[in-house]
Structure formats: C-alpha cells, structure tokens
Design a binder for these strands. Structure first.
Lengths: 158, 158
DNA sequence: GACATAATGCAACTGAATTGCATAAAGGTC
DNA sequence: GACCTTTATGCAATTCAGTTGCATTATGTC
C-alpha cells in the first residue's frame, strides 16, 4: 500500500506538485483494498484533513487524467476510484453489492478477455475495458438470510 | 425487431397491461440496434407520442423489473436501455464512444467469461455481469482525424 | 354506470458532479 | 525578501439524471 512518501513520489513522477491534499487523497486510495466513492474518500478526509468537495473531485479527475488512479462505474450512480493497476490490460472485474453498495475487486483467473481479438474486427478504437459483476455480497447474504431482499432493487435502481 | 403487435404481446405475456405508452417505449427499444438513453427515447417519443419524463422512467423501471428490458451503464452518467437478450448468460459487451456518447453492441466470440467459475471461489452471490469497452467509435475517428481529441475526456468525465 | 385499481402527469426534491469566479498558496526572477 | 505569474483551493450556484409525493385520469370489473 502507498505510504505518504510513495504518494508524494508518485505525484512527482507525473510532474504534479505534491500538495498535502493530493498526497492525502492518493494515500487513502492506496490504503483501501477496494475502490472508493468520492463520498467515502470525503468522509475519511473529514476526520483529519477536511477539504472542499470540489477540490476532491478535481484532484480525482487529475489523478485519473495522469493515470495514477482508475475510475470505475459501480451499479449505482457514483463512480469509484482506486489506485491504477500498474500493468495495462491487467484489468480485473469488480463486484458490486446491490444491497449495501460496496465494491470488491475480483481476482478471476478465468476471465481472459482478449481486447486485441475484438479490436481486429471492431471498427472503433478500444482504449479501455470494464467488467462488473452485480449481486449480493457475503455480508449481506449472512445478515439478511431469510429476510426479504428489500433493497435488492438498488442494483438497478440506486 | 419488435413491431407493435410484438410489443403488445410481450407485455401481455408478462401480465402487464399494454397501454399505448408502454407499447411505444417497447417498440422504440425493439427497433433500435443499440441501447438507448432515456433522453434518446424521450426525444423519439416527443415527435409522435409525447409523454411525461417520469412516466418514461417508470415504464423503463417496470420493463427492467419484468425482464423485458436490460439496463446497462455506459461510460457517462445516464443508463441505457435495450431489449433483453432472450437467453440468460448470453450477455454481450457494449462499446461506449467517449467522444459522442454512442453505445454499440459488440458481438465478440472471444469473450467467454465463465461466471460459474468465478462463483466457485467468490463468497457473494453473482446475479449479473456487465462488460463495457470504452474508446472512440468509427464515426468519430473518421470525422476528427487529425483534430485534437477535444471531448475525449468525456469517457472519464461525462 | 359505479367503483376500485392501475397508469399518467405535475411539481418539487435528491444526489452526484460541474462551472465560474474569487481567494490563497507555490514558484520563479530580480 | 519583494514582486509577479502560475497553480491550487474554496465557495456559491448550476446542471444533469433520476426520484418522490400526491393529484388526476384511464382501465377494468361487477
């Protein structure tokens, strides 16, 4: 996981000035096992290092633009941000729990989508791929065994 | 593609009363080669069969809930709706053009993601999968050859 | 035709993200 | 260090997509 020095040097590598805010945001993302929503990042920041919402969005945008951070879509309407996997094409799927909204990385060896193969016959330029699995996570399955699904519609209807 | 009678009978099959509005919406989706945003559906409707925004959203929700229509996420913040592929697990990827926002279905034989395999080791319940490719579509490549990408950021920044 | 149920419309609201502009911080030059 | 330019951050207001609550209209059944 990325410590403060790591975040700082990552930013410098990309020619970005390592302001405290940026270092913090990158650090939070580096310490999270799964991608986070701006809200979650914001909440974490509030405790120690409050910053304006807009600033957070702008920092995230910039990190994505410089390839340090990956932005993925979850089943709901908020994007999630996570440290970018270093190797391109080593993208992994994400699991979205439609009950609690949590996101998990899925390390699935069985998924080998050959973007190159598709590119051969596809007339547009493919730059990126995103795979998402929707369902109910382990915790929600355990906690709500026997209960009515209730919020399950969230997957489709955030 | 679905003609009016088809839409009507599809609705009846699901026990839904085939109101003019519903038949129209289902017809539009059936005649489109690619999934449409509510905005696009709305615009199409305006010409011949104006209806309230909310009604459209509610009809779409219902069609999704009854499995007639599939709701997918594009690279931007609007969902897209398309007739549901009849066979489950025959999901296909969608291509999102980050320049013009259009969506295309990709029929890629090379993509065989075995959800069952993932399910064996994944502790949650997987109910659905979505694969999306982001890039620049054929048209935008042609029209903007040599020009600066300009709006390309849309993929990440709708 | 009367009535209950379902469908639609309208207005106001929410949540996530964005824009425009003002202020504050960094960084370079003398 | 003072001055100035560039870059970051903050604040307020706005957009965009979708949702909620409630009134009104249509549909179907007896």
């Amino acid at each position: 996981m990325a410590h403060r020095e790591d975040s700082t040097s990552l930013l410098k590598q990309k020619g970005l000035t390592p302001t405290p805010h940026r270092v913090m945001v990158l650090g939070i993302l580096g310490n999270s096992p799964s991608p986070l929503s701006p809200q979650e990042i914001f909440a974490t920041l509030q405790r120690s290092h409050p910053m304006n919402r807009v600033t957070l969005y702008r920092i995230l945008d910039m990190l994505v633009a410089h390839g340090l951070v990956e932005r993925i879509q979850s089943g709901d309407r908020a994007f999630r941000y996570g440290l970018n996997a270093q190797s391109p094409h080593a993208e992994h799927p994400h699991f979205y729990c439609s009950h609690c909204g949590s996101i998990q990385c899925v390390h699935a060896d069985s998924i080998h989508v050959q973007v190159e193969d598709i590119q051969k016959t596809f007339p547009g330029l493919i730059q990126r791929m995103e795979i998402r699995l929707d369902g109910i996570c382990k915790n929600c399955l355990r906690n709500h065994k026997g209960k009515k699904a209730g919020n399950e519609r969230a997957a489709q209807k955030p």
